[in-house]
Design a binder for these strands. Structure first.
Lengths: 243, 243
DNA sequence: CGATCAGTTGAGAATGGTCAAATTCGGTGG
DNA sequence: CCACCGAATTTGACCATTCTCAACTGATCG
């Protein structure tokens, strides 16, 4: 896949038109391609001098572990997403990230980012947008957990993933392939795995969505949108703001 | 107050050493000073072409409202914080922000930010850091709501505010003045106001912290830190990473 | 063919919500 | 100074969403 259609380029292009020079500079983020097995932990909370990655293939998730062993998944990453961007800006990584499936990712060093800003200021704007979009997703996730019922949370989460996947050309309105387990859903939504199972059963029985065998199938897309109160403006994927 | 000691400069200096040129460019964010009354809504979710602000005096909060009228406060802003930065990068604002007290703030336009990145690339890095730090706070807030009990949430929230205030020279280890009501706490922590009141009473009776009459008093700072499992690394305020 | 991991279901418990009613407190007008 | 108003806080009684523990099924894999 050429840099012109890499998932990251596709995503950034939803915000800003990038010049040939910008794309050339951006290409430098993509040296150092790596492969990791499912389950590998790429970013370790509390460690210093971490790298960041740009995910090219597969799924990952970032999370924090609490002293009692509980885990909160903060974000799920799909192709085109940064992984551990904050860990190279901060003294110590504030979170961990691990591969959910086998993944391919480009390792990005702090210097790559800082140098690119000097050569292509527009790239700085694009990266700031990408970071802000990540923040917007965490914000919506926060609202989801803070103020919505377990069923609405689940519906919202599955719809958000569908919308994000479609931006990078994966899945469609009928559904998408999803490697997450019910434990992942529980840790992401602040629920117990047992309750996740009950919620999924109920949504399936209501004819709204089926989560089974690694696939999310939207049985009643608009019904699910209504239940979840899903408004995807926060994903800001309506085409470039800056030409 | 000179730009050299503005709360924003103080905060950015915790991450990066800024040159004279950088500071000069930064000063341009501070034209267009405005005053707003308590309760004024500066950023409106769903609206286009919003401004951003840099808070100079007073407290604000950003939030989302759900269809059933429930509110989730995402973040509380204190002097030196950006307000609505995402709303100028996105097509439509993904959240609202309102003044908690009477505030003073500088209005920042999208062009101010983008132009400054061309003249002072290091500023781009600093702003990306500030945005990432905001994201780190939302992330910790998410963990707080997703996986901690009501008491731990409250303890954590009050401690975080204390740590952030001390970075910009407000409050100390004994406590700080806090204009938030118990309703604000409820909306921030995903609890009911009634339960907030019970939790505060319990923390007070345990001799840990007193929240009364607009003041947070830490009665047992280290006890509170332990209860909350508070580790402030995620605030990344240990001095500049980049000289 | 045991072992392990993901998923499923039931019963009882707990954290935190809802509703309703006092009480306190900071202003404001007389 | 005092009466009064609205907002913020406080408390009680009851309720419900979600958790925990425990057991069981089914698929996959070396």
């Amino acid at each position: 896949m050429s840099i012109l259609q890499s998932p990251l380029t596709l995503k950034l292009s939803a915000f800003v038109g990038l010049s040939a020079t910008d794309l050339e500079t951006l290409a430098r983020y993509h040296r150092r391609r790596r492969t990791f097995q499912a389950g590998h932990e790429l970013i370790h909370e509390g460690q210093r001098n971490q790298s960041a990655f740009i995910l090219a293939e597969g799924w990952a998730c970032s999370f924090k572990i609490l002293p009692d062993g509980e885990r909160q998944i903060v974000d799920v990453q799909i192709p085109g997403d940064f992984l551990g961007l904050r860990s190279i800006l901060f003294h110590t990584a504030d979170h961990s990230s691990e591969a959910v499936t086998r993944i391919e990712a480009s390792e990005v060093l702090a210097a790559d980012i800082f140098e690119s800003f000097e050569e292509a200021p527009r790239l700085a704007t694009a990266v700031l947008w990408a970071a802000s979009r990540d923040e917007a997703m965490v914000v919506e996730h926060l609202v989801n957990i803070g103020r919505r019922s377990a069923e609405m949370r689940m519906a919202h989460f599955l719809l958000e993933l569908g919308a994000r996947l479609s931006l990078v050309g994966i899945g469609d309105k009928s559904g998408y392939d999803c490697p997450l387990t019910q434990y992942h859903l529980a840790d992401a939504l602040g629920l117990s795995a047992v309750h996740v199972n009950r919620v999924l059963r109920h949504l399936r029985e209501e004819g709204l969505v089926t989560f089974q065998k690694g696939r999310v199938a939207f049985d009643d897309f608009s019904g699910l949108m209504t239940l979840a109160d899903f408004d995807m403006d926060y994903l800001d994927q309506d085409g470039p703001l800056l030409r």
